[in-house]
């Protein structure tokens, strides 16, 4: 039976359907999860999708962090279940303290929407094992508040421990410190990523299929378990 990957829909989520589609194309069974439930429906991995949960009121992800299902998501993440936060999902993971740092408004103050080249630096997380370290991929990027910030000690620790998962190549699109596009936790099961791999899983509807590896990686990790 194919592993089940849950995708949480918050009020204001935009990319939940695309994320479920990416999960399906990768070969897993997508499961729609609802923010208001206290039920992960037995999923083997979880995706927090992009969008504007709760209207981005207060701070991006600040209210979603306290959604009922986040109790179960945080517990699952701490138990080693693979969790991927994309864009708004990354913001929610930071607000939940599952990942360090925070995402602030783009330094140039405009929304950015473009195909973005990334270099995968850590290919040993639950979500990047199907890539090779140093590989470059192109996936869409679309955010208004995608500037990753943390204090220097945190940034040094992330780099020193190999926890920078992906970095921007060919120009920093949002002012992220040290060009960081994605990070992971110490265990490597929780990954936050500002760009959108779920929009690069089919030739017809994206810049290519180089985002699919994030989803097949989780499948590989789950099957091997």
């Amino acid at each position: 039976m194919a592993p089940k990957v849950g995708v949480v829909t918050f009020p204001g989520s935009l990319d939940d359907v695309d994320a479920r589609r990416a999960v399906r194309i990768a070969g897993a069974e997508p499961v729609a999860l609802w923010h208001g439930d206290h039920d992960l429906q037995g999923v083997d991995a979880i995706v927090l999708p992009g969008g504007f949960s709760y209207g981005d009121y207060l701070r991006c992800g600040a209210i979603a962090r306290f959604a009922p299902i986040m109790t179960e998501v945080v517990a699952a993440a701490n138990a080693g279940v693979p969790v991927l936060g994309i864009c708004n999902g990354f913001q929610i993971l930071c607000e939940s303290h599952l990942l360090p740092g925070a995402l602030i408004r783009n330094d140039h103050r405009t929304f950015v929407c473009r195909d973005q080249q990334l270099v995968i630096e850590n290919a040993s997380t639950a979500w990047t094992s199907d890539y090779t370290a140093g590989q470059t991929v192109t996936v869409p990027l679309k955010n208004g508040e995608g500037g990753f910030v943390a204090d220097a000690a945190t940034l040094d620790a992330l780099e020193g421990e190999g926890r920078v998962v992906a970095r921007y190549v060919g120009g920093n699109p949002n002012g992220s410190l040290r060009d960081i596009a994605g990070i992971t936790n110490e265990r490597g099961n929780v990954v936050g990523l500002m760009p959108h791999p779920e929009h690069a899983v089919e030739e017809l509807t994206g810049p290519g299929t180089e985002g699919l590896g994030f989803f097949t990686s989780a499948l590989t990790a789950l099957v091997a378990r």
């Binding site: 602030i104 408004r105 783009n106 140039h108 103050r109 500037g147 910030v149 002012g175």
Partner: peptide, 13 residues
């Protein structure tokens, strides 16, 4: 308030 060392794009605007 944003911490002094954190960029404040809105204030800049």
């Amino acid at each position: 308030m944003p911490k002094p060392e954190i960029l404040d794009p809105q204030g800049k605007a």
